[in-house]
Amino acid sequence: MIEIKGLSKNWRGFSLKNVNLRVEKGEYFIILGPTAAGKTLLLELIAGFCEPNEGGIWINDKNVTRMTPEKRGTGFVYQDYSLFPHLTVKENIEFGLKIKGMPKSRIEEKSKEIMDILGISHLSHRRPRTLSGGEQQRVAIARGIVIEPSVMLLDEPLNALDARTQIQLRGELKKIHREAKLTTIHVTHDQTEAMVLADRIGVMMNGEIVQTGSPEEIFHFPLNERVAEFVGVENIIEGMVTSNEEGVATIRIDDHIMEAISSAKVGDRVRVCLRPESITIAPSKTLSSARNSFSGMITQLVPLGATCRIEIDCGFPLISLVTKTSAEDLGLRVGKGVCASFKASSVHVF
């Protein structure tokens, strides 16, 4: 378990302000935030590479705030892998075990085991610079895990990899975590990574943890507009609450009425936010369980590979994400009239 209380640090233009965080044992915690939010600095503080100006860090109930890095037992993986270039893959992995003075036979056994798990046994005598990015990152992860750290700290570990390797390694990280139940703090700016891997997410912006919660909470119920924009809520619309009956609020947006699950009071000026993938597109008004249904015209259509981003003018702009196949089946094109609908429960109000 990791506990961080009131942590502040200024360092080379980056700053952390009063960071409070609690990561449970065995949890996969993702710190999600834009570049230069101070994410790496937070990890380096946990590892002990630098000291905080204020606040404290506890690892498994032990105060490690003033402890040197070698006594903390964290496993650290940098974005650029940081493998020791003068050592072979095997020597890299065995580095921590040798330092600990583990008997030779045990070292052999452990490094073999971890190399098998990560599928890098065939690389054991190669030097890091002869490996691909994905291979290097596997070695870096193996080197960190093999010492059985109290917490695994991953600093944008998949960022420098190509898309295919990213997906592959993401899966492996998930698998390894499931099997080893290692407490992990993983820093990233990639939403998909956070969605796929995290048990819980902490959103970090300008050196502060703005919101923590499950992926569901973060992506569907962002705390404020800044978080909403960052986590990809593309529809943020202003309106006014005109009625609220047992938690179902009616919100007026210009001449349109939208329903949302919210406790907002009548007369409140609110922002409605809605993820683009929550909006279904149909050729004409259909009867469905969706309480909100708006007719409009497609004003823009951008293919994004497997999906298609569609802008619809319903009197107010709505952005929807549909699969490429359904866009083709429905014959969507600019100028076509369609009906956009979504559930009241998909609408988040703040």
Partner: peptide, 15 residues
């Protein structure tokens, strides 16, 4: 790269 030293220290090596 000082990061190499950082990693070595996280693995249990003194400075």
């Amino acid at each position: 790269d000082p990061r190499l030293e950082n990693v070595a220290r996280s693995l249990g090596a003194s400075r």
